[in-house]
Design a protein around this nucleic acid. Structure first.
Length: 273
DNA sequence: GGTCGCCTGGTA
DNA sequence: TACCAGGCGACC
């Protein structure tokens, strides 16, 4: 469940469960996770106390009092299940963190694409994230500057966590629909008014998100994502799906007005302004 | 810049 | 049985 609102909700759940608690044991249950952390490093977590749980973009950081950091990224499907040692493990349990007080935190992830790492200190993980949608420092002029040298389609630029941290495939489609911008337009081609609209739209989309797991129920709250073949909620035109960098983008071909396409799909420019 | 691989499950 | 999937890093 991997975009910003979902990760924020998960991080809060984790924080409530483990802040100021002492780790008793951490187990990695899937080979892809076991490959990432040695059993020695894992064992050394025993007795460490959690001082804070922090979210940065879609990353979750568990800060330990001695400075070590447990870094978790859910990728496509991860979520936390908070239970106790006596509960049966969830079907897709990939890791467990057991605490002295009896609480157990389970990393549940059917696709097993989540990552789990332990770092000696926060300096060890340069995450290279841009501002988050809610960051007051993220203004239209600043976003314009960031996008001005990017020739990729705007949809692809928005997925780049260095541009805006926390956006994923669903909310980029939603934001572009709301701002009436063609997802195929070159990022650098967007005008200032378009960028202003886009920023407002992204903030609205994020604010509306519940942080709940993607489902039919959640899907019914979305305006374009996964609505190929259905009528646009603004103009009734049939929503289209295109592939961009191997991922589905949904948009309304009428109200997301066609704009000059990204440079990669266009004849080479003859001059540079 | 785009595509592939990681993994496994749900759905048409 | 095929295809699709909310991410991202490695690779061409």
């Amino acid at each position: 469940m991997p975009e910003l609102p979902e990760v924020e909700r998960a991080a809060r759940k984790l924080r409530r469960a483990i802040r100021h608690r002492t780790i008793d044991r951490v187990r990695l249950l899937h080979p892809s996770l076991q490959r990432r952390v040695s059993s020695r490093v894992l064992r050394a977590l025993r007795g460490a106390r959690v001082c804070e749980v922090e979210r940065r973009g879609k990353h979750q950081l568990v800060h330990l009092e001695d400075g070590r950091v447990v870094h978790v990224h859910f990728r496509m499907n991860g979520d936390w299940v908070i239970d106790t040692l006596s509960d049966p493990l969830p079907r897709f349990a990939r890791a467990t963190l057991e605490f002295r007080e009896g609480t157990r935190v389970v990393l549940e992830d059917s696709r097993a694409l989540s990552t789990f790492d332990v770092h000696p200190s926060i300096e060890w993980l340069p995450l290279a994230l841009g501002p988050e949608p809610g960051d007051p420092g993220l203004t239209a002029p600043r976003l314009e500057l960031t996008l001005s040298h990017r020739r990729v389609p705007i949809k692809i630029a928005l997925l780049d966590q260095r541009v805006i941290a926390g956006l994923g495939n669903i909310y980029t489609s939603e934001g572009l629909w709301r701002a009436k911008i063609d997802p195929r337009a070159s990022a650098a081609s967007l005008t200032r008014p378009e960028i202003s609209r886009l920023l407002t739209a992204i903030r609205a989309v994020i604010a509306r998100a519940t942080g709940g797991r993607y489902s039919r129920l959640e899907g019914s709250r979305l305006d374009v994502y996964d609505r190929e073949g259905e009528p646009c909620r603004r103009c009734g035109t049939i929503i289209q799906r295109v592939r961009q960098s191997g991922r589905s983008t949904y948009f309304c071909p009428r109200c997301q007005l066609a704009r000059p396409v990204a440079a990669v799909n266009r004849a080479p420019a003859k001059w540079r302004p």
